[in-house]
Design a binder for these strands. Structure first.
Lengths: 143, 143
DNA sequence: CAAATTACTTCGTGCCACGAACAATCACAA
DNA sequence: TTGTGATTGTTCGTGGCACGAAGTAATTTG
C-alpha cells in the first residue's frame, strides 16, 4: 500500500508546485492567479458569465467582481449578447490578449523545464497518462 | 512539438483538478485551503513561524493572520520557544489534529480514485515519475 | 398572460496575501 | 561589555478573492 499513498502525496505536491509557478508567472505579467485563469479561458473566444463561472468553478457572484476588476484594468470587455438582452459576453481586449499570450508562453516554458530532465520515453508515458487523467477537466490552458 | 505543449496543458489541468479537490475536501472538514495546508505541515510536529512561512511559500506577515484565525478556531496553538524568546512554535491542538487527519484521509481517498482506473503498470510508472518530479517540493502532504 | 426560470448584479462577510514599518531579541565582534 | 547588524514575529493598510442571500430584468413555458 505504500505506493498508492505515495501517489496522493505526489499529486498534492505536484499541484502545489504548478500552482506556485502559475502564481509566479502571473505576477510577472501583472496578473493575479484568478485573472490569469479567466484570461486563459477567454482565449477561445467570448463567453457568457454563466458559462465562464462554470468553467472556472466559481459562483456567479464571485465572477462579477473578477470581471469588474479585469475590465477596470483594460484586460477584458463586457458586450451585450444580441440574442439575449439579459446576457453578457466577456471577451479579451487587445491588451488582455497580449498579456495572456505572454503568460501562456512563459508558463509553458517553465512547465516544460520541469519535465525536461526526464528520459524521453518516461516523459512521453507520463504525458500520456496525464492526458488521460485530465480528460474531462475543462480546458483552462489550451494547447 | 505537439507533445511537449500538451504536457504543460496537462500539468495545469491536473493542478486545477487537485486544487479543487483540496478545496472541496477542506470545506467538508470546515477548513479553508490555506488552513488545511498549514495543518498538514504541522502534522510533523511544532514549527516556528519563519520555517512555516518557508514551507508554505508565504510571507511572514501573511502567516500571522493565518495562525491567528486558526488559533481562534482552536486548531492550533502558539507556544514560546524556550531557546529563543523572540521565537514562537506553532503546533496542533487535539482538535486540529483530528481535523487534519480526517482531511488527509478523505483527500487521499479521493485522489486515489483519480488514478484507480489506470492499469496497474501504468499507474505505478506514473507514480514513480511523479515522485521524481516533486522530489524537492516541501512535504505538504506526508505519506 | 402569469408563473417559473435564467442571467447577471449588489451587498455583506470573512479570508488571504503582500509590503512597509516596527519592537524585541539574539549573535558576534571590537 | 557594548555596539551593530541580523533575525523573529507583529501590526497596519491595501487590494483581491469567494461565498451566499437577495434583488432586477428578460426570457421561456404552460
Amino acid at each position: 500500500m505504500r505506493e498508492t499513498i505515495g501517489a496522493a502525496s505526489g499529486l498534492v505536491r505536484l499541484a502545489f508546485l504548478v500552482q506556485n509557478l502559475y502564481a509566479e508567472v502571473g505576477r510577472g505579467c501583472d496578473l493575479t492567479e484568478a485573472q490569469a485563469r479567466m484570461l486563459c479561458v477567454l482565449t477561445n473566444g467570448s463567453v457568457g458569465m454563466a458559462e465562464l463561472s462554470g468553467q472556472l468553478c466559481l459562483e456567479r457572484s464571485s465572477l462579477t467582481g473578477l470581471v469588474d476588476r479585469a475590465e477596470q484594468r483594460g484586460l477584458v470587455v463586457r458586450e451585450a449578447d444580441p440574442h439575449d438582452r439579459r446576457a453578457v459576453k466577456v471577451s479579451l481586449t487587445p491588451a488582455g490578449s497580449t498579456a495572456v499570450h505572454r503568460f501562456h508562453q512563459e508558463l509553458t516554458e517553465r512547465l516544460e523545464k520541469l519535465t525536461a530532465e526526464l528520459p524521453v520515453a518516461e516523459r512521453e508515458r507520463f504525458t500520456r497518462t496525464l492526458q488521460r487523467l485530465v480528460a474531462d477537466v475543462p480546458v483552462l490552458f489550451a494547447d
